[in-house]
Design a protein around this nucleic acid. Structure first.
Length: 721
DNA sequence: ATCTCCAAAT
């Protein structure tokens, strides 16, 4: 609206009023035509992603209008080159309304609402587009109230302003407000109807959506497509198909809605039939079809389609890589990953989580480093994946570095990454930092609470765990089954038998939690540790589940502690039946026999292990020194510092003996010669790791030693602080 | 005729 005025002003400036306006000379006419042609070319190049060619044209122009600059700015924004766009905007000599509006929109799309607001406040004149851009900016970032305030202040509201505020409500889930607004006015256009209808579809309120659809004064393609995909995505394929047949015009969206609807409902053959009938396919249609085949594990067909696809985009590659990775074909995934023409953070995330999922933590970490070197920024999902990798290999130092990176890029807040950080600190043995993180999560969800409770329990801080549990209840979060597993194991590890028993019996009544087998296992562990083996056994007999390996394992652990070999044998026998590959159980039972001097049974156990092909997982201990992990096994002689480590341990033993310490070979659980037993005691993997830690970690700093042997779900860990 | 704001499908 103000645009023509501004242009007149410019003319007034360049041509004095008292002289008649001269007719444009032929050269001037051709100049302005030239400029127009150049502007058109810039736009065309930008639309096809050829920023360099656009820039060359722009640089070669001897005269430019604001449209030339605007075309460059919006072109850069279209190609996600925000910084270049901003540079152009800052450099341009005379900004017009469109320049400001384009830049504001760019800031909003780049996630920088503050910059958008600054521009909005600075601009000399605003039109409806400026206001609408700000309104939509607030709406897109979840600031509904601010969006409403902008809307109320718009002096010359147009239909887009009205649709903007309607969309603000719909996008942020406030369908009732949207509905109220809609009813308060009658001058809505087809976009408004579509918008509200889309809101109902999102809320899965298909009946309300359909009601609007039927009442609409005018329908366009979007109306049909919204309604069709609403049905298709909510398992109402028959209704979707009916509407599809009725639809007067079908475009790519219409067809694709049907394809992805069938795919999402696992009807891949129907999807394929529609896909083959489509008169025109775009990359979304192809990708949906490929994802469908990957979903139902028809990997080969997916790959065939992918190879035949003419217009592969990053999503196509990402879909295939994710599919391969999730079906365990990590090498095929990697092959595609290496071949793809360009990658985004989804591609990196797909391959990294693929390796992490298979337990190849080293490769996951290596790729993460490579990603950062390539200049790609990690998103929340990648950070979360890598944090759990750190937890898996218990690399606290690496975890701390990630934490620092998260703070730097501003992704540290919020429960999503917060929970991953929390879990990392818990598993890496830094429960204090875990607590700091926990306190900092402003939008704690049930997982946050459960993680910190289980973390405290795991580290033996039962009372702390229960204190957190109480404050969880006070803050109005309802405990779930997982919470109670943490709470019961907290009681178990701290010997709080009565309290644990109380929770166990009241949790159904108090929190509506159905007792599951994990809870029973916790209780058996709790009673067993307290020496109440009979009660534990009774509980197991009366529980409404068949005891699983974990339950018997808990009983075995308890019997072992209290030297009840008979019960332990029975428990171990059950575990063998259920999990013939559970090497840990063979070792436990073998150790139990050894402890009671039943060497014949130990030998039989060994034979059984050999015959069933079970391999004992060797016990490892490791310690982290300056981001490097040093691993030790029993009597390890492979470490470069072996001589120093053994020398130090010898010296330590000499001093211990001088003080009257006698090591206790009886605790060694193998049938070996006395001398060798003593050797094993001295050079047990933890001791080697501790010695190395003492020799290499500065005094006053904690030495954290980790072990790989697991009993049930609990990672045994020694913290030497 | 070239530039900006609202609605639909991985």
């Amino acid at each position: 609206m103000l645009q023509p005025v501004t242009r007149c002003m410019r003319l007034l400036h360049t041509r004095p009023l008292n002289k008649p306006i001269p007719k444009p000379s032929p050269s001037l006419v051709s100049d302005s035509k030239m400029i127009q042609q150049c502007n058109t070319s810039i736009t065309k190049y930008m639309r096809t992603g050829q920023c360099h060619s656009a820039l060359r044209i722009f640089n070669n122009m001897t005269q430019r209008t604001s449209v030339s600059w605007n075309a460059m700015i919006s072109g850069y924004l279209l190609n996600n080159k925000f910084d270049l766009a901003r540079q152009m905007f800052d450099k341009m000599p005379q900004r017009d309304l469109v320049s400001w509006n384009v830049m504001i929109t760019g800031c909003v799309r780049n996630g920088n609402l503050g910059a958008a607001r600054n521009l909005f406040d600075q601009m000399p004149h605003r039109d409806a587009v400026s206001w609408n851009a700000m309104l939509s900016g607030y709406a897109q970032h979840g600031y509904v109230e601010e969006a409403r305030m902008v809307f109320d202040r718009i002096p010359n509201k147009n239909s887009i302003s009205w649709n903007g505020i309607l969309a603000a409500y719909v996008q942020n889930g406030r369908i009732e407000d949207a509905q109220k607004l809609f009813e308060s006015n009658s001058a809505w256009d087809v976009v408004s109807w579509n918008c509200l209808m889309g809101g109902y579809v999102r809320k899965k309120r298909l009946i309300d959506a359909r009601c609007l659809f039927d009442r609409m004064p005018k329908r366009d393609e979007v109306s049909w497509n919204t309604m069709i995909s609403g049905y298709a995505q909510n398992r109402e394929l028959a209704e979707a198909h009916k509407l599809f047949d009725e639809s007067p015009i079908k475009d790519v969206y219409t067809w694709t809605a049907m394809v992805s609807g069938y795919v999402q409902n696992g009807m891949v053959d129907e999807a394929r039939r529609v896909f083959d009938e489509m008169p025109l396919k775009n990359s979304v249609s192809w990708n949906a079809m490929i994802a469908g085949y990957l979903q139902c594990k028809k990997i080969e067909v997916a790959k065939e389609l992918f190879d035949a696809m003419p217009c592969k985009n990053v999503s196509s590659w990402n879909t295939m890589i994710t599919g391969f990775a999730q079906s365990g074909s990590i090498d095929l995934a990697r092959d595609l990953f290496e071949k793809m023409p360009w990658r985004d953070c989804i591609s990196w995330g797909a391959i990294i989580s693929g390796y992490a999922h298979l337990g190849n933590n080293e490769e996951a970490l290596r790729l993460f480093v490579e990603m950062k070197r390539s200049g790609e920024k990690a998103n929340r999902s990648i950070f979360s994946c890598i944090l759990s990798t750190c937890a898996e290999i218990t690399s606290l130092e690496l975890g701390c570095q990630l934490h620092a990176q998260l703070v730097k890029v501003g992704l540290g807040s919020g429960w999503y990454v917060g929970n991953a950080l929390l879990s990392m600190y818990c598993k890496c043995g830094n429960i204090d930092e875990a607590n700091v993180i926990f306190e900092e999560i402003s939008d704690k969800d049930i997982v946050s609470w459960n993680t910190i409770i289980a973390g405290y329990a795991r580290h033996g801080f039962g009372k702390e765990a229960l204190r957190v549990f109480e404050s969880m209840k006070r803050s109005g979060v309802k405990p779930d089954e997982v919470t109670m597993v943490g709470v019961l194991s907290a009681c178990s590890h701290s010997g709080l038998v009565d309290r644990g028993t109380h929770y166990f019996h009241t949790m159904n009544h108090d929190y509506g939690i159905t007792t599951n087998s994990k809870h029973y296992t916790c209780m058996i562990d709790l009673l067993g540790r307290a020496g109440r083996l009979d009660d534990a056994l009774n509980l197991m007999k009366n529980m409404p589940f068949e005891p699983d390996a974990a339950t018997w394992g808990a009983l075995l652990g308890a019997s072992r502690i209290y030297g009840n070999t008979e019960l332990a044998e029975k428990a171990a026998e059950m575990v063998f039946q259920m999990e013939p590959d559970n090497a840990g159980m063979y070792v436990l039972l073998s150790n139990l026999y050894a402890a009671s001097g039943r060497w014949g049974d130990v030998g039989a156990m060994r034979l059984k292990m050999r015959d069933t092909g079970v391999k004992k997982v060797p016990g490892y201990s490791w310690v982290e020194v300056q981001s490097k992990i040093h691993v030790f096994s029993v009597g390890d002689g492979t470490h470069p510092d072996t001589v120093r480590i053994y020398g130090y341990l010898e010296e330590l033993y000499f001093r211990l003996k001088e003080d009257g310490y006698i090591s206790s070979p009886k605790l060694v659980l193998h049938d070996v010669e006395e001398e060798e037993k003593e050797h094993m005691l001295r050079y047990h993997s933890e001791k080697l790791a501790v010695a190395f830690g003492i020799l290499n970690i500065q005094g006053g700093r904690p030495i954290r030693v980790f072990k790989n042997l697991r009993v049930g779900e609990v990672l045994l860990r020694c913290d030497f602080v």
